[in-house]
Amino acid sequence: MSLADGTRPRHVPDHLTSRGQRVIRSWETLLVGVAVLIFLANTWASPYFLDPWNLSDATFNFTEKAMIGFAMALLIISGEIDLSVAGIIALASTAMGYALQFGVGTPGLVLIGISVGVACGAFNGVLVTRLGLPSIVVTIGTMSLFRGIAYIVLGDQAYNGYPSSFAFLGQGYVFWVITFELVVFLVLAVIYGIVLHATNFGRQIYVIGNNPTAALFSGVRVQRIKMILFLLTGLMSGIAAVCLTARLGSTRPSIAYAWELEIVTMVVLGGVSILGGAGSILGVVLAALVMGMVTFGLGLLNVPGIVMSIFIGGLLIGVIALPRLITLIRKGQI
């Protein structure tokens, strides 16, 4: 076959065509489109949305949650889950506030917050990997345990008076409107992206999530990797506790209340299969941006917090149900 000028058409390799089709049809591409639509809708709905400082403040709606979301994504891909992350934040923040009463400075407070997070993650990991308990049951229990300890220590009181050097971790700006938290978020996104998508450790996580028995017989140290993932989730919860406490400037036992729902929603919205074995860090980043813009836009319109909670709950159910509905439609069962 020749063209009008007598030349033969250039053949496009099949692998490039199929790759292009996968990109167009990918969940991440859909999230980019949704993010653009939400950005335009917020711009139209509120004249204050495009203000650089308002956009900078909008990042606080997702950076701390997304930090935990990166580790949660790896854990869910492996077939496990941690619903105690908000309780870990409450306990870590309480430990930092308690240490503050004895004059502990910023480096010590950061170390305490992160250490408590790692310890809680280790506790969850031991119960799941050593005793063989279901992670969803274990972390529902520790969710109440960790926050309950914070309520016992604090009651209706609050810890205040954090030093200005500590406040910078949650309120400081690195350059113009670029916050310190946003920089940490971006660095962690790159690190977790490399770990999951470019290392043997990341490939083993996918293998475990798809078939843990086959992974075990293939020589993958399944329980060890899951233990590491619980430690990472605790570590990220500790880091998020430091940033959130520094941003709020106080510690209350109700801090980060119900964050576990939003974090799981963020991860699942990012394309991570709740059944394990599939997902990407890029998807989690895009989902974080989408949820951040939605909550910030609703905030600018003075929408009540309960409406946001309804939206988050509905979004989680919708995202989980959508793949199943598509499958049933394709089979002609609906």
Score class of each variant (00 low, 15 high):
S165I: 11
I310P: 04
P47R: 01
S84H: 09
I76P: 06
H15C: 02
M293N: 06
L261E: 11
T295M: 04
T43R: 13
V138I: 10
I38G: 01
I178V: 14
L282P: 01
V272S: 06
G318A: 14
Q223S: 15
S18P: 00
L50H: 01
I136C: 09
I149F: 12
V34T: 10
T251G: 01
G276I: 13
P52D: 01
N211W: 07
G132D: 10
Y173F: 15
R10C: 00
I320T: 14
A258D: 15
T295Q: 11
V126F: 12
M67G: 06
G292S: 13
L16R: 03
L37C: 14
S218F: 04
L325E: 10
G170Q: 00
S93F: 02
G155P: 10
F166W: 05
V36K: 08
F185Y: 15
W53G: 11
L244A: 12
L74P: 00
G238Y: 04
L216T: 13
V137P: 06
S2F: 13
G33F: 13
L55M: 14
G219Q: 06
Q333C: 02
F168G: 06
S309W: 05
L286F: 08
S2G: 02
Y151L: 14
W176Q: 12
L100R: 14
T199S: 02
F311R: 00
L31F: 05
V104D: 08
L154R: 08
V268K: 03
L300I: 02
R203N: 14
R324W: 08
F175H: 01
F168V: 11
G238I: 03
I320H: 10
H197Y: 05
M1I: 01
V242P: 05
V319S: 09
N302D: 15
V183G: 00
A4M: 12
A256V: 09
G20A: 11
Y206F: 15
L261R: 03
F175S: 00
D156V: 04
M308S: 11
N54Y: 03
V128E: 04
G103C: 12
A92K: 03
T142P: 03
G202L: 05
L55S: 07
I136P: 11
L261A: 12
W27N: 15
V153I: 15
A45D: 01
I24S: 12
L182M: 12
V110K: 01
V126H: 04
V207K: 02
T29K: 10
G113K: 05
N200P: 00
F201T: 14
M266R: 05
A92V: 10
I255G: 02
I320G: 10
G234R: 05
M308Q: 15
G103A: 12
L83G: 10
E260G: 11
L316G: 09
A71V: 08
V36R: 09
A66T: 15
V137A: 13
N200L: 06
N42R: 02
I140E: 10
V12E: 00
A119T: 12
S46N: 09
G202M: 05
N160G: 02
V207E: 11
G314T: 14
N302E: 09
G271K: 06
